[in-house]
Design a binder for these strands. Structure first.
Length: 493
RNA sequence: GGCGGCAUAGCCAAGUGGUAAGGCAGAGGUCUGCAAAACCUCCACUCCCCAGUUCGAAUCUGGGUGCCGCCUCCA
């Protein structure tokens, strides 16, 4: 069984066979940097990060390139509104994007090309399209002639004649009158006064939205790549136009597979800038009682990447509880390794997924692979993680409450490592609490309070007993009374 | 109008011809002075509706209903 990927281009799942078996080339459509990233972006890039991590784990070499669109109308408008240079805006939001993604444990791309860094190549590419008769100059603008590209519409399943009707409403726009065909789109836009502009054979101007991606794919990865990915809304017109440009210029397939992620909804409605119902990633992660970033990651992964997900407080609360279980499982080794007699718990590499060897033929790993091979079925893959985590959680509680587990320590170790490795493939990671002593109360103080409480309990002074329990609870210490009057305690994470 | 997607328990969500994963929530019990994110057990004879194919369908076919997305910047 090989990995099957749903290809938007063919509208079906296909076996994944990279053009070069030794190197998978991926281009991921990035953000336009004029504002903070929102939860929709989080969903998208968490999904693609998961795809990348899985391919890496399966042994592929992956070259992952993601662009920043750093010149466009919205950036210019923002720069005028705030009265700062356009590249001040873009620098700010590029940094913000990278910071947000780091919090969500999204791996850095191998390269982050920007539109404005490839202007000469864009001009060259446009010239190539003009030379091949695929584009025409009109009054300082350059347009792509869609009628010259016979398979225009193949990605989105549209036909030119069917789209004309819908375009009639925009004919009053001044640019429309310059076009030979209503669906023609700008490759180069002549500069208006005061706008950032670059010199070109057609006069001062800037690139259109779609051309940058064609050029950056070409520059970074070559004529043809394996996977091109982005949000569902990019299928048309963005990706359709990229295909027209790249294939129109190079006469080679732009990408073998096209992957598109589903949207984030808010109460059943699409989250978008135009509807103004979006939440930024940092607003979400920095609000009061905000969940850990991993909760957002888990929430995203609990649905298949192509399906819409609905954002609600209830859904987040559910993910939060789920993450707690997973986290306990992930921290199992750190918490109980010593007690189980594992000898390497102080090693620097302890707990590092890269240093773990797990049994690939074990049932959980096989089930995980089977799920992920089926077009990255993360909900099914997560079921495996939950089962492992619940098992470990149970054994951990036995160790805490009874002081021993009936399961063989090495078996537990295998289970734990399997969980950690598989979770890592999904980008789910828990870090052990740093310093236990720094939490404001020492072990000795705790023991002393437990002694006081024991005295109170013997005197049936329940009020005092509960006061001590609650006091410690506030300090993050949970007391567990066991049969025989013995009380143990744990620091809650 | 054109193209596409989805409908599975209170909620989220897998499964796509062989008799309903997983998560959240919930219920009962154990233990307990209390508490516990502890332990045990339970929780869809049923998969939007109707008709058909089949030994057998949530899964295939036809029809219907409902919801959503794209066709304009958008992950």
């Amino acid at each position: 069984m090989t990995l099957q990927i749903y290809n938007t281009l063919t509208r079906q799942k296909q076996p994944f066979e990279p053009l070069d078996p030794n190197l998978v080339k991926i281009y991921c459509c990035g953000v336009t940097v004029y504002d903070l990233s929102h939860l929709g972006h989080a969903r998208s890039y968490i999904s693609w990060d998961m795809v990348r991590r899985y391919l890496l784990w399966r042994g592929y070499h992956v070259q992952f390139v993601q662009n920043f669109t750093d010149i466009d109308d919205k950036i210019i408008r923002r720069s005028q509104q705030e009265n700062v240079p356009w590249d001040t805006i873009t620098e700010k939001y590029i940094q913000a994007y990278l910071d947000d993604m780091a919090r969500l444990n999204v791996l850095r791309a191998d390269a982050y090309p920007r539109a404005t860094q490839v202007i000469p190549q864009i001009i060259e590419f446009i010239q190539m399209l003009i030379d091949r008769g695929m584009a025409y100059v009109a009054d300082g603008d350059v347009y792509y002639a869609v009628e010259r590209f016979p398979s225009y519409g193949k990605l989105s399943g549209r036909q030119l004649d069917q789209m004309e009707a819908g375009a009639s409403g925009r004919l009053d726009d001044e640019a429309e009158t310059k076009k030979h065909h209503p669906m023609d789109f700008a490759l180069w836009k002549a500069a208006k006064p005061g706008e950032p502009a670059w010199d070109s054979p057609w006069g001062k101007g800037r690139p259109g939205w779609h051309i940058e991606c064609s050029v950056m794919v070409h520059e970074a990865l070559g004529d043809s790549i394996d996977i091109h990915m982005g949000g569902q809304d990019l299928i048309f017109p963005h990706h359709e136009n990229e295909i027209a440009q790249s294939e129109g210029a190079l006469a080679k397939p732009l990408s073998k597979y096209w992957m598109h992620n589903g949207f984030v909804n808010i109460s059943g409605e699409k989250m978008s800038k135009s509807l103004n119902n979006f939440t930024t990633i940092r607003a979400f992660l920095d609000r009061e009682n905000a969940p850990e970033p991993m909760v957002l990651r888990l929430f995203v992964l609990q649905a298949h990447y192509r399906k819409p997900i609905d954002f609600s407080d209830e859904a987040i609360a559910s993910a939060q509880n789920g993450w707690h279980t997973l986290k306990e499982g992930l921290l199992f080794g750190h918490q109980f390794g010593k007690q189980l007699g594992w000898t390497d718990t102080d090693d620097a590499s302890f707990g590092m997924p890269a240093a773990m060897r797990i049994d690939d033929t074990s049932a959980p790993v096989q089930r995980f692979i089977e799920a992920m091979d089926d077009d990255f079925n993360t909900p099914a893959a997560l079921a495996v993680l939950f089962e492992l985590a619940k098992d470990l959680q149970k054994e951990g509680n036995r160790l805490t409450h009874d002081g021993k587990s009936l399961v063989d320590p090495q078996t537990l170790r295998q289970q734990w490592q399997t969980l950690v490795v598989l979770a890592h493939v999904l980008g789910l990671e828990a870090t052990p609490a740093v310093s236990q002593e720094s939490m404001g109360i020492s072990d000795a103080e705790i023991e002393a309070l437990i002694q006081q409480r024991a005295v109170a309990k013997q005197a049936k002074n329940w009020a005092e007993s509960d006061r001590i329990r609650n006091h410690l609870k506030e300090k993050g210490i949970a007391l567990i009374d066991k049969p025989g009057g013995v009380t143990t305690w744990i620091r809650e994470s």
